[in-house]
Write a protein that binds this DNA or RNA. Structure first.
Lengths: 210, 210
DNA sequence: AAACAATTTAATCATTTGATTAAAAATGAA
DNA sequence: TTCATTTTTAATCAAATGATTAAATTGTTT
């Protein structure tokens, strides 16, 4: 009891230092390519401390991954499950939230997706994505718009893919864009800010295509 | 001289076996997560043969990566640099080619993109992407369409991102879709075939948005 | 068949890497 | 201060992994 409280006084600093370093390195290189020594160097702490605080590389990774998943999907969940907003409004909010999030954390998508390829089951089990996506109010609303003849009847997954593709994909290909097109970071961000306004309009145009 | 010809008689089979196995494993797990032993098991050959034929894991990886890059970008290059086709036509051809390619090789995008994040410079230098993309006839044609007032004046990179996002991103998130939505492989492919027809229309709608 | 070259195998190395341990240092309580 | 607990360090371990070597096998040429 007193152990815990005493521990946390100074632990917090070191534990957080390790986690922050782990987040940076894992996000940049993925699980397999990061060595525990990379994390210890990045954080400036002794290698043994990593195991002292987190027991194992894998355990530390799982913590970082869980936080990353939550951070990434909570925006989606809140935007998709708001029952007071229109479909158009949900999309605007989603696009806005995500582009802001991704400008701050551009490495999250490729991090999640490349780990997803290795162990999809374990990753998916960490978060209740069905609730976020398939059972979301967004999906129900989409179906009712279709029935009302407001939008073209297609599988709502197409819209999800288009939204995700238009929002997320640029960040995934950005290392390439910078290298190829000589696009600088601020130039890239400027394009992304343009997209905040444009993607909702594009989606509106798409769902009216016959 | 005779060495070479004699060698290649039986080498071909083994060398190809190793390369094919390497392609499968590298595409699935990436460079850092694949062990040379994985490749030897996948191919059924002795571990030492990998080094006998390819000198090192890294060298073998570079060969696979180069072929993957070429396979991936040659479709784009040929579609984009055809001076006889209209912009609309180029997009149709591109979408068709790529969705077919990706249904056959769904792991290529995440493979390329996740390696791209680690060493963008080395990867980009392997292929002259500027010629394929920025200096392509597609880009010039796009600009002339803008000048003629046929389409809304935006940075052509937005169209590139939308195209890439709508075509490629679904394949990157497909492990997740299958796990979450219970979408089976053939169901997924069916959706992708639908997209072959729809993406060109969607892009047309997008470039007319004001 | 004999000789030579190419291919394959089994055993082993050397390095990397995740993890542990024992001791030292720092911190807080009495 | 003194003692106990927590935190940190340096050294080391054990397993994994990329690579090599020497010997065995197979195939080709004469």
């Amino acid at each position: 009891m007193s152990t815990k409280s005493i521990k946390s006084k100074n632990d917090f600093s070191t534990e957080e230092k390790i986690k922050n370093a782990a987040r940076i390195v894992f996000h940049k290189k993925g699980f397999a390519a990061t060595r525990t020594r990379d994390i210890s160097e990045e954080s400036g702490i002794n290698l043994a401390l990593l195991n002292y605080y987190f027991r194992s590389k894998e355990n530390l990774f799982n913590i970082i991954m869980l936080e990353s998943l939550q951070g990434f999907f909570q925006s989606m969940s809140s935007a998709f499950n708001d029952e007071t907003s229109s479909l158009e409004n949900k999309i605007e909010i989603l696009v806005n939230n995500y582009i802001d999030l991704l400008i701050e954390n551009p490495d999250i998508p490729i991090f999640i997706l490349s780990e997803l390829r290795t162990n999809p089951k374990e990753l998916i089990s960490k978060i209740d994505i069905k609730k976020v996506l398939l059972k979301s109010y967004f999906f129900k609303q989409f179906q009712s718009y279709v029935k009302a003849g407001k939008i073209t009847p297609i599988h709502p997954m197409h819209i999800m893919m288009n939204l995700a593709g238009m929002i997320v994909f640029p960040f995934i290909m950005s290392p390439g864009l910078k290298e190829i097109g000589g696009i600088k970071q601020d130039e890239f961000n400027k394009l992304m800010l343009q997209r905040k306004a444009m993607i909702p309009k594009w989606i509106q145009a798409i769902i009216k295509v016959k």
